[in-house]
């Protein structure tokens, strides 16, 4: 038995905040990250992280430092060990150090905030994680984005440009670059440039230029937590998610254009034409029957799928070819095209 799938309470399966935070901090190329816990925590998180990168065809390994807590620190406290680790990391001259707490440092009660507030000559930022104690992968990810935002400069209003900030890309997502490229294509239709990908393959200096953007676009902020936080921090208007499906994609163009007082009508017409050409490309699938397999934990009822099926002339029917529901909805019209290629492979198999 693998009890991973045997419990109805899925809150037990929300992962570890250490990995979530690392999936942000490790993408600031010149920053150092210290996982404050046993070496095994850093190994496990970085191994998972790195193997995902390998699967994406990326070979660079970011430096992830561990305070390497041992039994002695478990008994007597790990704060001195954390100070030593910060000193060790400083020998490599990082412009910023992020601290990721673990369930161990939380349980033994280390005061990470106090250690971070000491003077090290560079910012040492606590990303406020605690492994699984009240935390999850997502909360680690959110807290790390908030922590990294401490590096955003204020007082930039006169430098603002017709560009967008992309916030909270899922760096471990297989299609992260394709999704970004799709949103960039949509922004290009409106004449909006890119300011910063916060946080993906950037430097600490890049973060300082955050305020030159005029619009924040989030990868996915279902709860609105990040949208509210960044609105308050930067004063910039926001779009809460990358678009999925035909209508959302057109809506994205309308919304971005309206927010920045740009004419959007032509961009929408061009995108509609592109969508028609994509569905025409899959006209051989008209009349086919499909049904969705959600693996028990994904949402197969999303209107998004019905929308694509109807536009292609495919019928959703319990007797149809079983199509697996992807972990995340494809982004934009380009995402629909890749999804339909997959459907075609299943239907023709």
């Amino acid at each position: 038995m693998n009890s991973k799938h045997s419990h109805s309470n899925i809150s037990r399966h929300n992962g570890c905040s250490v990995s979530g935070a690392l999936s942000v901090s490790a993408f600031i190329k010149d920053a150092a990250t210290i996982v404050h816990g046993p070496a095994g925590c850093a190994h496990q998180a970085s191994s998972l992280f790195y193997s995902t990168m390998i699967a994406h065809g990326r070979f660079e390994i970011p430096d992830i430092y561990t305070s390497g807590l041992l039994e002695n620190e478990i008994i007597f406290g790990g704060e001195d060990r954390l100070r030593d680790s910060i000193t060790g990391a400083l020998s490599f001259d990082p412009p910023v150090i992020f601290i990721i707490g673990t369930c161990i440092s939380e349980t033994i009660g280390d005061d990470i905030d106090s250690v971070c507030m000491e003077d090290y000559g560079v910012p040492v930022i606590n990303l406020n994680t605690a492994g699984f104690l009240g935390d999850s992968f997502d909360s680690g990810f959110f807290n790390a984005l908030k922590g990294a935002s401490e590096l955003i400069n204020s007082g930039f209003k006169e430098e603002r440009t017709l560009t967008a900030n992309i916030i909270g890309e899922k760096n471990l997502e297989f299609e992260v670059e394709e999704n970004f490229a799709e949103v960039k294509r949509l922004l290009d239709l409106l004449g909006i440039g890119l300011n910063i990908r916060f946080v993906r393959d950037i430097t600490t200096d890049d973060i300082g230029t955050f305020g030159r953007g005029s619009l924040n676009i989030f990868r996915e902020d279902l709860s609105g937590e990040l949208t509210r936080f960044f609105a308050e921090k930067t004063g910039l208007p926001s779009i809460p998610a990358f678009p999925s499906g035909t209508n959302e994609t057109l809506g994205f163009l309308r919304e971005a254009g309206t927010i920045l007082s740009l004419p959007w009508e032509e961009a929408v017409e061009r995108e509609k034409e592109y969508q028609r050409s994509v569905f025409e490309e899959f006209s051989d699938l008209r009349g086919e029957l499909i049904t969705f397999d959600s693996f028990g934990f994904q949402d197969a009822e999303m209107p998004f799928f019905i929308d694509i099926a109807e536009n292609t002339g495919i019928k959703v029917d319990p007797e149809g070819t079983v199509i697996p529901v992807p972990f995340t909805a494809p982004v934009g019209t380009g995402g629909i095209r890749r999804l339909l290629r997959e459907w075609r492979r299943f239907i023709n198999a």
Binding site: S3, K4, H7, G15, C16, V18, G131
Partner: peptide, 27 residues
């Protein structure tokens, strides 16, 4: 232990493992 510890062990070890998936309440 927690899902985070188990997920890694499950990835590394090819044989079957089970987990209590502890959450904060149980701690």
């Amino acid at each position: 232990g927690s899902a985070g510890c188990y997920n890694y062990a499950e990835m590394a070890v090819p044989d079957s493992l089970n987990c209590t998936y502890l959450i904060e309440d149980e701690i």
